[in-house]
Write a protein that binds this DNA or RNA. Structure first.
Lengths: 194, 194
DNA sequence: GTCTATACATCGATAGAC
DNA sequence: GTCTATCGATGTATAGAC
């Protein structure tokens, strides 16, 4: 028996939208309360604190992302395809969680200023390990270049995927497919015509 | 006749360090004052407001960057080299202005929340135009691929250079040289071994 | 140019009635 | 589960003495 909607869910979505658009710190408890049409005191019936809302928004998104990446690697295929699959799934999940994805990249400072977001960092570390496993695998099996720094490559492609949700908001999976293919093409084969 | 050091300059550097490490909003006027050993009220003798400090820190950095990019393009050479030179100069200037560079990428929200930072955005727009000119020139003269989205490429390499100062703090120009060469190699020729 | 003192706003969070 | 009312902390900025 689930209500037609859960007020708690409405608060989460509304807060996420505010956090994404204005930043976490400038989005006050009173603003969130106004946006869901209750008073600020009532918010504390649903959540212990403002940071608890941030944690739940980011935790859901990053957990979904982490699980999706692990899942896509169960397909047996070559390293280049594995890398492409990581790119595609990352773009897809981030596109389905635009507010959360935006918040995460914009609030690295906020998330690091105290241990209260450690659970979030644990999930992110897991995601990074997945990427590294694929990249190092590709270097080992000869798919990727040995004369370039694999860690640098990791950082560059991770940031590219991470931040591309800033400008690419695709509504259909076709666009995500195209974007993933182009990003992978640039990072694997380069933009040079020769 | 310049004093051995200018208190105003000390404030700027100290504030920049705080802004970079803790974020602009959490770095309070009192913290800045404490760090330079005066009281918060005295800060207002040197600057009209906290945002005026932010504007001056970022303005100096971005103006230097913009001028450097324009300067490096006066050398007549091929498009691939021009692109490499943009990468190198960007890394170099950002490395020489680590606090400001860090602040800029971490505070996009803060900088966009009101028109008081419009002068900053004007300089950034100029920098973006410089990059676009080089990339479009390379596409036109056949140096760069026609089958990939040049705007996407622009966004990716710009972010890569922009954000790589997060993890690469080189103290000597040799490392910057190496980093620029590797970034350019990945973006022009790819990480694939084949 | 630096100080003390403080005005004034706004924040997150709590208490207790309904 | 929502309300009103408010506490206590903290923020930017100002006023005026020295």
């Amino acid at each position: 028996m689930v209500a037609p909607y859960d007020r708690r869910e409405v608060i989460l979505t509304t807060a996420a939208r505010l956090f994404a658009h204005k930043g976490v710190k400038p989005s006050t408890i009173r603003m969130i309360a106004d946006a869901v049409d209750i008073t600020s005191g009532s918010l504390y019936h649903h959540f212990d604190s403002k940071d608890a809302i941030v944690r739940e928004v980011l935790g859901r998104y990053l957990t979904t992302l982490s699980n999706n990446l692990v899942e896509t690697l169960q397909e047996e295929t070559d390293s280049a395809t594995r890398l492409h699959n990581l790119v595609f799934r990352s773009l897809e999940v981030s596109n389905n969680n635009l507010y959360a994805a935006t918040i995460y990249q914009n609030e690295l400072h906020y998330l690091n200023e105290s241990p209260r977001f450690d659970p979030i960092h644990v999930i992110v570390d897991d995601i990074q390990r997945t990427w590294r496993r694929v990249i190092e695998g590709g270097v080992r099996d000869g798919s990727f270049r040995l004369d370039l720094d694999a860690t640098l490559f990791h950082n560059l492609i991770r940031d590219a995927v991470w931040f591309s949700v800033r400008y690419y908001h695709s509504s259909d999976s076709h666009t995500t497919e195209t974007l993933a293919a182009e990003v992978t093409a640039i990072f694997l084969h380069g933009f040079s015509a020769t």
